[in-house]
Design a protein around this nucleic acid. Structure first.
Lengths: 200, 200
DNA sequence: ACCATGCGTTCGCTATGGAGAACACTCGAT
DNA sequence: ATCGAGTGTTCTCCATAGCGAACGCATGGT
């Protein structure tokens, strides 16, 4: 699978943590974000109040920015700072009820299933959706870097990317990029869905 | 220094982002975390591979650490880096089905309720719990800074802090600190709960 | 053709973050 | 009271992050 498979069932332990600061990744992030906003290196440097030489070196992977500098960039890019320190993005994933790695438990009548380990420093806002059958509710893409996670609590629904939605029932889980057109349509009355909206 | 003052005003909608890097807060975080682990300044410095003088200055709010340094501290403290950069913590919150701010929608048969806006840079891992009635499942405190969010999908359950759990039904939402003893007990067969585990 | 204006890179120079030693302080043990 | 081992603080020195200027390279206007 993808990046999730590499997370060993994130045990009782703590989130993984690399030994060395991802300077290269920071470099990449900055460049990516900058280009996404459509700013030139010169402009960004000016806006962030840092020398463009500094920025240039940062983007080339050279150097080890101070918090002050990196923060200024975060502000200028309107990006949650730590986003600059961390990585890329997922695809559509489905976990049917009963599927998925189950964390062993001392109680037999108690089951925990990890749906999605949170990418470092992403934001996940939690929602409950209550949908009635009817016209499909299509969403225009949200801001880039968004991922949606949904668990159907009750009812049935058609959820996912607009071009290939999936039918899900109670307990089923799906995640998909939120920055492309996607859809949510109830198939039964009183369909309830728990959604985590992830802004990386 | 005041290179930040020239920054354009905060864009609406986005997560709050202060104009200046929270050096004071970083200082506080480091000290807090260090003391929580019960390490001396000297020990931590050694473990992180930085000079204790540096650490001392950092904790006193003086200075502007490089990413390298801060990262080393994050590793040594076993703390998700961005935790060092960000702030305090929540309490128990309950949102019964139908309560809560509802985002207006163009469709009458479509309701979105915001449960919990994600604090900047928190991690939220998603789980599904399937619990059968029986002995209450009590959890020892997880790592400091953890918050749990739970939405009951089906059934009924007694959830919350060990000393004052609450009975929740389908659609109900609760959040509570995960770093103190808490409890989860099903009251009906086939109780399903969606949980977001938040490591700040 | 030419210059003007934008880009991102590379050059010193200086301000400062970080390392290490020396420092003052608080405890127990002798 | 005196030492020893621990704490956290404050020094001095050096490596370097960050700055500003100069550079090379693409544009497009005249």
């Amino acid at each position: 699978m993808d990046r999730y498979s590499e997370h060993p069932p994130e045990g009782p332990g703590r989130p993984e943590r690399t030994a060395r600061p991802p300077l290269a990744r920071i470099a990449a992030s900055i460049r990516t974000e900058r280009e996404r906003i459509g700013l030139s290196l010169t402009e960004l440097a000016k806006r962030a109040g840092i020398a463009k030489s500094t920025l240039s070196q940062l983007e080339s992977g050279t150097g080890n920015p101070s918090v002050e500098t990196l923060w200024a960039l975060g502000v200028a890019l309107d990006v949650p700072f730590s986003r600059l320190v961390d990585p890329p993005r997922p695809r559509v994933t489905v976990l049917r009820l009963g599927e998925g790695a189950t964390v062993p438990s001392e109680h037999a009548d108690y089951t925990v299933t990890l749906l999605a380990s949170c990418p470092p420093h992403a934001r996940r806002d939690l929602y409950v959706l209550r949908v009635e059958p009817g016209a499909p509710k299509t969403s225009e893409p949200h801001s880039p870097g968004t991922t949606e996670h949904a668990v159907v609590a009750s009812g049935r629904a058609l959820i996912g990317l607009s071009d290939e939605p999936l039918e899900l029932g109670p307990g089923d889980y799906i995640s998909y990029p939120g920055d492309v057109p996607h859809i949510c349509q109830a198939l039964e009355a009183g369909t309830t869905i728990v959604v985590a909206m992830e802004h990386v």
